[in-house]
């Protein structure tokens, strides 16, 4: 069978998005102790801000601290952006895809879901949080590895990677958007140990610490970090790399499988790619980083909507 059901294409995109989202969130929570600290001390608020969850969070909790935020984002089944909610959604999608994905992919997601469902509140206490986040992250990476090694390379595979890169680009822009503003130092703090550790935490949250050390060497500045996350040719989570991947994947899909749809999405992707290739970081910061990121996110949303309209129509 070579056809791919429209509903399955939708599910596979979502499966990839959820798994990518879980990994990113686990990474952010794993470095949150450093990451979330602002100049006045420990503050878990930025984690809530990155996910734009302020309203829902404060409807459930009075303060954002080391108890409430990890619970809200990892174990709270009532919170649709929690890891457990994403895991369940990923499993639900994987379940509907069982005839399509490898048995090993399904088995691992199923196991991850039952493992996480069985966690107690104690698992997210300050002493256990970091280890838990590492385990969650590794479960996601196991998924990635099993997928690489077992998932048959047909249409579904391309849709999977479209979803994954879309989510990745989105996550990187969110991270940068919030942190760039909260982290912009006052003149007297520039180069201080606290300042440096903030940027390091941001890079760790984006899984870019090691790579950025090699590339940026000593010059860890707001500008160099922003440039790295947006424009690096080689960092797997940079926005431009994700967009290039999507462009390639969609082109392949259309030519290899004779899919007529997706023209509008391709045009949007080309435009986004062109802008990311042409701009340098000084242009971006002068014109406003937030505005630029906002525009990227809107483009990504449009691309997603076009993809679904073109390939995942429902009755």
């Amino acid at each position: 069978m070579s056809e791919l059901l429209a509903r399955n294409a939708d599910s596979i995109i979502w499966l990839a998005r959820y798994m990518e989202r879980i990994e990113n969130l686990a990474r952010i929570l794993g470095v949150a102790e450093t990451f979330a600290r602002d100049r006045s001390g420990a503050n878990w608020l930025p984690v809530v801000q990155i996910n734009a969850d302020g309203e829902r969070f404060f409807a459930r909790h009075r303060i954002a601290d080391a108890q409430t935020v990890p619970h809200f984002y990892i174990l709270d089944p009532e919170n649709p952006t929690s890891i457990i909610s994403s895991v369940r959604a990923a499993r639900e999608n994987a379940r509907s895809l069982r005839p399509l994905i490898s048995i090993e992919m399904w088995r691992q997601i199923n196991r991850m879901s039952s493992w996480m469902t069985g966690l107690s509140a104690n698992a997210v206490s300050p002493g256990n949080l970091s280890a838990l986040c590492t385990e969650i992250k590794e479960a996601c990476q196991l998924h990635v590895g099993i997928t690489e090694g077992t998932f048959y390379r047909d249409q579904a595979h391309y849709f999977y990677h479209l979803g994954k890169n879309l989510e990745r680009a989105d996550q990187t822009t969110r991270l940068l958007d919030i942190k760039y503003h909260t982290l912009l130092p006052r003149p007297e703090d520039v180069g201080s140990p606290l300042d440096i550790s903030h940027w390091n935490a941001l890079l760790k949250a984006a899984a870019g610490y090691q790579a950025s050390r090699r590339v940026l060497a000593g010059s860890i500045t707001p500008k160099s970090v922003a440039a790295f996350l947006l424009f690096s040719d080689s960092f797997p989570r940079s926005v431009i790399l994700c967009v290039r991947q999507m462009d390639w994947l969609l082109t392949q899909l259309r030519s290899r499988y004779n899919l007529r749809g997706g023209g509008e999405a391709l045009e949007l992707l080309d435009e986004l790619r062109a802008v990311l290739s042409d701009r340098n970081i000084d242009d971006v910061i002068n014109a406003g980083l937030h505005e630029f990121i906002d525009w990227i996110q809107k483009q990504l949303m449009l691309i997603f909507a076009e993809l679904r309209e073109a390939f995942c129509p429902s009755r």
Binding site: L4, L5, A6, F159, L259
Partner: peptide, 9 residues
């Protein structure tokens, strides 16, 4: 017909 990514099959 079934609804696929390439249209109806």
């Amino acid at each position: 017909y079934m609804l696929t990514t390439a249209g109806r099959a």
